[in-house]
Amino acid sequence: MNRLKKIIFFAILLIGGLCAMNAQEKTTTAGVPVVKLNNGVEMPRFGLGTFLQGSNEICKQSCLTALRAGYRHIDTAHAYYDEEGVGEAVKESGIPREEIWITSKLWPTEYGEGKTLKAIDEMLARLQTDYIDLLYVHQPVGDFVGAWKDMEKAVQMGKVRALGISNFDANDEVFNEIMEKSTIKPAVLQIECHPYAQRTEMRKKAAKYGIQVECWYPLGGAQSQGLLLRDSVITKIADNHGTSPAQIILRWHIQEGFSVIPGATKPDYIKENIQIFDFALSNDEMQQIRSLNKEQRIFNATLDDVKRMVWGTKL
């Protein structure tokens, strides 16, 4: 009888310890882990990317599908031409604004002290919101330092909660310049990142400043034509878990500590992508996926290519 009591006692201790461990990681109602950024603001680490949605109406429907499936983080940009769709979806969803994390990005033609604040107000109008949770400079081109000064003012005015840098992996010069000349340091760095390009050096640089890494093209994007989804290591792990390769890749991102924003327009894919919080990859499976790294980018434009694209785009 005493032995049985001891077994029960230790079982209770074990269960209590597991509960305490789980309680340490804050999550949304859908089980999405939340990260506290270097400015103290909390952000869901999983969201919907809205690049190439096609139109504001398509984007609105994608966002509504996502919000109903439990997403609470939506990533857009002025250059995506779908901010209005995001704003309409948030409004129509009936979910309190404070429960939804909205990210957007300024285009280089909007950069410049005295110019960017006006662009931010126009962005707020398109999104039909009083504030943006995370605002990026979209590309390291043009007067991004001047833009940052206005972005810092927007934070002080309560129009923006956190600031980020997108694609500042172009070279050390642009990354170092924003770090040296900013008063409010970037909270998030958004870059292409997936099992074939795990960006180890950029992650080290970001970690020095407590910057959260957020991944675009986590599944390789349409450009990759399903390259990652066909990988034999990933498909075998997916078979073992009874999941899709996409779910395995996204789960890997989450367990690596990334924030991740897979893009999708098809409702089934949007719903499938977030269904990654009821299983976990083993240490061995994580290591197998880490071994796939060859720093093979899908988007391989040079900074000069990006500059030509930027100045050739009119918003």
Rank of each mutant, 00 (worst) to 15 (best):
A79P: 00
I102R: 01
L37E: 02
R68P: 02
N38F: 06
A79R: 11
F46Y: 14
H78Y: 11
P33H: 13
R72D: 02
W101F: 15
D82K: 06
L37V: 04
R68K: 15
G94I: 05
I102P: 01
G47N: 11
G54Q: 10
E57N: 13
D82C: 15
E84H: 03
Y71V: 06
I58C: 13
E83C: 03
Y80W: 05
Y80L: 05
A66Y: 08
W101T: 04
G85H: 02
L48C: 10
L37Q: 04
C63G: 04
H73V: 03
A69L: 03
C63Q: 03
N38G: 07
G40F: 10
K36D: 04
G87I: 00
L52S: 13
D82L: 05
A69Y: 03
H73G: 02
N39G: 10
I102H: 00
H73E: 01
K60Y: 06
G85P: 10
P96L: 07
A89L: 02
R45S: 14
I74Y: 01
G87M: 01
I74F: 00
H78W: 11
G40T: 12
K36T: 15
G94E: 11
A79L: 12
V86A: 01
G94C: 07
C63S: 11
A69V: 02
P33F: 14
V35K: 15
T65N: 09
H73R: 13
W101C: 09
V41S: 08
L52H: 12
P44C: 13
V86G: 01
P44W: 12
A66C: 13
L67A: 04
C59V: 10
K60Q: 14
V90Y: 00
S55C: 12
G49Y: 07
V35A: 15
I100S: 02
V35I: 15
G87F: 00
G47I: 06
E92N: 08
R72V: 08
Q53E: 14
I100A: 03
I74H: 01
G49P: 06
F51C: 11
S62Y: 03
I95W: 00
A79I: 12
F46I: 08
Y71H: 09
P96C: 08
C59Y: 05
A77Y: 03
N56I: 11
E84F: 00
E98G: 03
E88K: 14
P33E: 11
T50Y: 06
E83R: 01
N38R: 07
A69K: 06
I95C: 00
G70Q: 09
L48Y: 05
P96S: 15
T65G: 05
C59I: 09
T76A: 10
G40Y: 10
Y71E: 08
R68L: 07
L52R: 12
D82A: 14
G85I: 04
G54A: 10
A89T: 02
L37N: 04
R45V: 12
R97E: 05
A77F: 03
L64A: 03
K91W: 02
V90H: 00
V34L: 13
A69P: 07
G70S: 10
K91S: 11
P44E: 12
N39I: 12
I74E: 01
G49I: 09
I100F: 02
H73I: 01
G40C: 13
A79M: 13
N56T: 10
V32Q: 04
S55P: 07
G54T: 09
Q61C: 06
R97K: 11
S93T: 09
G49A: 12
V35M: 13
I102Y: 00
